Computed example of a mutant assay.
Amino acid sequence: MTDTDGRDGFVRAGGGARIAYQVRGGGRALVLLAGQSNNHHWWDAVREDFHPAHRTVTLDPRGTGASDKPQHGYSISEFADDVIAVLDALGLDRVDLYGTSMGGRVAQWVAVRHPERVRRLVLGCTSPGGPHAAQPDASVRQLLAQPDPVAVREALADLMYTPDWRARNPGPYRTLGDPDMPRHARHGHLVASNRHDAWEQLPRVTAPTLVLHGDADRLTPPGNAHLLADRIPGAALHLVAGARHAYFEEAREEAGRVVREFLA
């Protein structure tokens, strides 16, 4: 697939939606899946860290970025089908898969439904979903339900990063949502994420799995990491001390090293 390195493209997926993808670097393919209501720029700060050994593949989930933004068709299983459509378009039979937040929910279903396509699986700051999941406390939900979008963005930034790190890194931050996302698509992502429940299926994951989580994550409590690691056969667990939801960016050196060693 050297002919696609460094290129952007589109693929037709379920319902005829065009899904945008981006390929960078060379080596074994590593698919990076972003969080809820975010496009591929979620990975901008750390993507190049994987390029010494991997070709990275990202996509704009339907409803974000350059992808189509249909009125309907938002579910975790639909997002997983979109990932497979991109892999098929690129001729990638088997890949390493790293999903964070909602992208981790999508990655769970890709690994469950298409085990032959996933060589190694990394699940970051994510949840098994459903009644077994550890839920954020009421104060977090209240912060994100404020009517003022500026206040919500500030609250989200605080959930993503520690104050000390933000003081040293004033942004702009690429993990706070796609600003051009239409309201119906944003709602679709929220509903899809809330309806995710892979609990009964997780023991079917056959790919070697690494679970990563910041131990100070209030958005997706770290108890979810323990649940995933216990539920997926043979899964390894790594908690990043003091990190919040965007552990992969704030603790870039530690988290990147752990993932690269696991994938190697």
Rank of each mutant, 00 (worst) to 15 (best):
I76M: 12
G35T: 12
I84W: 02
G124H: 07
V118F: 03
P147L: 08
A89H: 13
V118Y: 12
R105H: 09
A151S: 05
S101R: 04
N39C: 06
G65I: 07
V106D: 08
T64E: 04
L90H: 08
R120F: 01
K69E: 02
R119S: 11
S75P: 07
A151G: 14
A34R: 14
S127I: 03
F79Q: 10
P115L: 11
F50Y: 15
F50L: 14
A66Y: 07
L32I: 11
K69T: 09
Q108A: 05
L144D: 01
P115R: 14
I84P: 00
S139W: 09
D164W: 04
E48P: 03
Y161V: 08
T56E: 12
W43Q: 05
D137T: 03
P52C: 03
V140G: 00
R166D: 09
D81V: 04
D137K: 13
A45Q: 15
Q142S: 12
L156G: 05
W43G: 03
R55L: 10
P52Y: 06
Q36S: 14
S77A: 14
A66P: 00
L30K: 09
Q135P: 01
R117A: 10
Q135N: 08
L30N: 09
T64N: 10
D88L: 02
I76C: 13
D44M: 11
R94E: 08
T58R: 08
G124T: 00
A85K: 06
L144F: 07
P131W: 00
G91V: 10
R141E: 13
K69Q: 13
R120C: 04
L143R: 12
A155E: 07
Q135Y: 10
Y98C: 11
A53C: 05
G91E: 08
A29Y: 02
V122P: 00
R119E: 14
R117T: 15
V86L: 06
L143T: 00
F79K: 02
D81S: 09
V152E: 00
W165P: 10
L159V: 10
V106R: 11
H41M: 14
S101Y: 00
R94Y: 05
D148I: 05
L123S: 04
W42R: 05
E116M: 02
T56H: 09
P170Y: 07
N39H: 14
P170D: 11
A53L: 11
L159Q: 13
A29M: 01
G171D: 08
L90N: 06
D82V: 15
T56W: 10
L33V: 09
P136V: 02
D148C: 05
R141A: 07
D93W: 02
R153Y: 01
V152I: 11
L32V: 10
P147S: 06
R153C: 01
D60C: 04
T126F: 02
G130E: 05
N38S: 15
A66V: 01
V57W: 09
L156P: 06
A111L: 06
R47P: 01
P70V: 03
V112I: 15
E48V: 00
L33C: 15
R120L: 02
R62W: 05
A134V: 15
F50T: 13
R105W: 05
V46D: 03
A134N: 07
L97Q: 12
V110I: 14
W42G: 03
D44E: 14
Q142E: 15
S77Y: 11
D96V: 02
W165C: 02
L92C: 04
